[in-house]
């Protein structure tokens, strides 16, 4: 049996929105990831995926709940452990523009982690490692002495991936790590990530909105909507039989790469509105084609369903579904 490497338990995170309203960006989110596996997280923009990721790498503190890394509460760790965790849990960011220091060359960006964690003794070894990393992510060694602004968006994203890989982490939070890349490079990076996973037993939390790629790389998928987890399933199960009304809308919205394909109009209308902490009821209520009165008044709990996944929806769990 694979061991859980990461356990997220009832995680909560709030932000102060406009007019001092408290917005719950992440609301009681729980999941586990087993060592060597990939959990995909999908969901609409603003639903809190990035916030979950950033809390796991301790860029944010949690406002409730906890994150256990190999059983250890990461937000309560002492300094030495925190340092160790910083090496073991790495993040690749969504935004390749602001996540790289514009004043540093690629070489010094990639060298930084190696120095902090004292991974190589000599400069020569470090530089060799940087060259190796660049080639690993499909760049070449000539790029080492250039600055981030001299690269295109996709190239910058590859530098971000190389930086995360540089310190040999165990868990990588990939937040939209491939979204800025074109298809052929996406496929290369995904093949690379899987290859590295097999070789190094890496674990991934893979946040992305390209559902094909999430499907391909993930063992399990968690679907988020406005800060809550609405459905969790093995990848196969989720695609075979999506249950939550939001998941269904999401899968329908995938554009098909065939000009003759008549895409059905998306059933998902409207817009997810950030909700204040006082909100009761299902967060999908205002957009759900199946909503009933009960959905407005009480928040559905995430429960196991006969077909094998867990899902949070009153109607799916009701008898006449």
């Amino acid at each position: 049996m694979a061991e859980p490497i990461l356990e997220v338990i009832d995680l909560q995170k709030e932000f102060i929105g406009s007019r001092k309203k408290r917005i719950r960006a992440v609301n009681n989110v729980s999941f586990t990831i087993n060592e060597g596996e990939t959990l995909g997280v999908v969901g609409e923009s603003g639903c809190g995926k990035t916030t979950v990721g950033r809390t796991i790498v301790r860029l944010y503190d949690a406002d409730g709940g906890k994150v256990l890394y190999r059983g250890l509460d990461i937000h309560k760790a002492d300094r030495r452990t925190t340092r160790k965790l910083a090496k073991q849990i790495q993040m690749v960011f969504q935004d390749p523009y602001s996540s790289l220091d514009p004043r540093k060359t690629v070489l010094s960006i990639l060298e930084e982690g190696l120095k902090i964690h004292k991974l190589f003794r000599t400069k020569k070894e470090r530089i060799e490692r940087v060259y190796q990393l660049l080639e690993l992510v499909g760049l070449n060694r000539e790029h080492a002495n250039r600055f981030p602004h001299e690269f295109s968006g996709g190239q910058r994203q590859r530098i971000g991936i190389a930086r995360a890989l540089s310190v040999n982490p165990e868990l990588i939070v990939c937040d939209e790590a491939i979204s800025a890349l074109d298809v052929s490079i996406q496929a290369q990076i995904i093949n690379l990530l899987i290859d590295l996973q097999d070789r190094l037993k890496l674990t991934y939390l893979f946040i992305a909105h390209d559902i094909h790629m999430v499907r391909y790389i993930s063992d399990h998928i968690a679907v988020m909507y406005l800060g809550t987890l609405v459905e969790k399933a093995s990848t196969e199960q989720l695609f075979k039989n999506p249950l939550h009304p939001y998941t269904r809308g999401l899968l329908e919205a995938i554009p098909v790469p065939d000009p003759k394909h008549e895409q059905q109009q998306s059933t998902l209308k409207g817009e997810a509105k950030p909700l204040t902490i006082e909100h009761e009821g299902c967060r999908f209520y205002n957009r759900c084609p199946f909503a009933k009165e009960i959905c407005r008044d009480s928040m559905p709990a995430l429960k196991a369903h006969d077909s094998g996944q867990t899902v949070a929806c009153h109607m799916v769990h009701s008898e006449n579904w």
Partner: peptide
């Protein structure tokens, strides 16, 4: 220039529409 690359599919669909 890549107007929906940073967006999820449902938002993408809406922006494209």
């Amino acid at each position: 220039d890549e107007p929906t690359t940073a967006l999820d599919v449902t938002t993408q669909t809406q922006i494209l529409e």
